[in-house]
């Protein structure tokens, strides 16, 4: 039983990261119906930027770990958000009126481009975060050990997701985003500036992805330029699992995917872990064709 709970927390920690990245996929998808395959590489960009700022500015040293990291997160978020908006302008906007899959291919091109930009700037070697930023303490609850960094990951992701949820549900801008997601043309007729909504979505989504990158850097301590592919695919899976275009769905999907992976590894096989996760996904989609929380929308494909 102890092992089961330990595996559960292992899975939830991984799932939190998936969920944070999945939010970016799902927001962009909700409004543009576009699978932004470059999202994973924006996440990588966040991880690398965080590393550069951390080592060059020495923020945590000057301002203390908490305040320093907060400022760092804001900087990374801002920069990655800007990159995301730029990407939208350069690679996706010209394709907005064309077949949906054309934009997907442009996104794949952008992904290759971003990944190799990072490689050319930072080199192909693995980069390592400084290890002394956060104290290495672990909480012991009934034989289940939870390191402090993991709690930080939990708390930060839950806070960000909660804030985003409130923003989408309670503010005017959030309402505009939801309206644009349901029907762009109608939203435009209602006086909503859809271009502005898309811009906001491309600021928030990549921004969250960037923070996820920073968290991964802090938590695991190691970043490399290809990491976006692995996390991107998993997060995209999570978004679909929860019902793509649906924000609580991305959170639920991410957490569930993380837990399936951990339990699959624990009780079936480590080597087959990803296959098990995909199998569960397929079974869920056969039973619920639009994901766990996905709404049943009229087929427009």
């Amino acid at each position: 039983m102890e092992e089961f709970f330990q595996q559960l927390t292992n899975g939830l920690a991984v799932g939190c990261i998936y969920a944070l990245i999945a939010l970016g996929y799902t927001m962009v998808y909700g409004v543009l119906k576009l699978i932004n395959f470059a999202h994973g590489d924006l996440f990588t960009l966040g991880a690398y930027l965080g590393l550069t700022l951390l080592t060059s500015l020495g923020l945590s040293g000057r301002l203390g770990p908490l305040l320093g990291l907060l400022l760092l997160a804001v900087l990374v978020m801002g920069f990655v958000a800007l990159t995301g908006a730029l990407l939208e302008r350069a690679a996706y906007r010209p394709l907005r009126q064309s077949p949906r899959l054309s934009a997907v291919v442009s996104a794949l091109g952008a992904s290759i481009f971003l990944q190799n930009t990072i490689m050319l700037i930072y080199g192909a070697r693995i980069h390592v975060y400084p290890q002394d930023i956060l104290p290495k303490v672990a909480l012991e609850i009934g034989g289940v050990s939870i390191p402090l960094v993991r709690i930080l990951v939990f708390v930060v992701s839950l806070l960000l997701m909660g804030a985003l949820f409130l923003f989408i549900q309670r503010t005017r801008l959030g309402t505009a985003i939801r309206a644009a997601a349901i029907d762009q043309a109608a939203a435009r007729l209602m006086g909503i500036n859809v271009d502005q909504v898309i811009l906001i979505v491309f600021l928030i989504g990549p921004g969250l992805g960037g923070v996820a990158g920073l968290l991964v850097g802090l938590y695991y301590g190691q970043v490399n330029f290809t990491m976006g592919w692995v996390y991107g695919l998993k997060a995209f899976t999570a978004a679909i699992l929860g019902g793509i275009g649906n924000i609580p769905g991305a959170m639920v999907g991410g957490l569930i995917l993380g837990v399936i992976e951990a339990l699959g590894a624990a009780y079936i096989s480590v080597a087959w872990k990803d296959a098990i996760a995909f199998l569960v996904l397929i079974v869920i989609l056969i039973v619920r064709p639009t994901g766990i929380l996905g709404e049943r929308v009229a087929d427009k494909v």
């Binding site: 092992e3 920690a13 991984v14 951990a262 480590v270």
Partner: peptide, 9 residues
């Protein structure tokens, strides 16, 4: 990046 599940097992 996360191998805690394997380690626990």
């Amino acid at each position: 990046r996360d191998f805690t599940a394997i380690l626990t097992k």
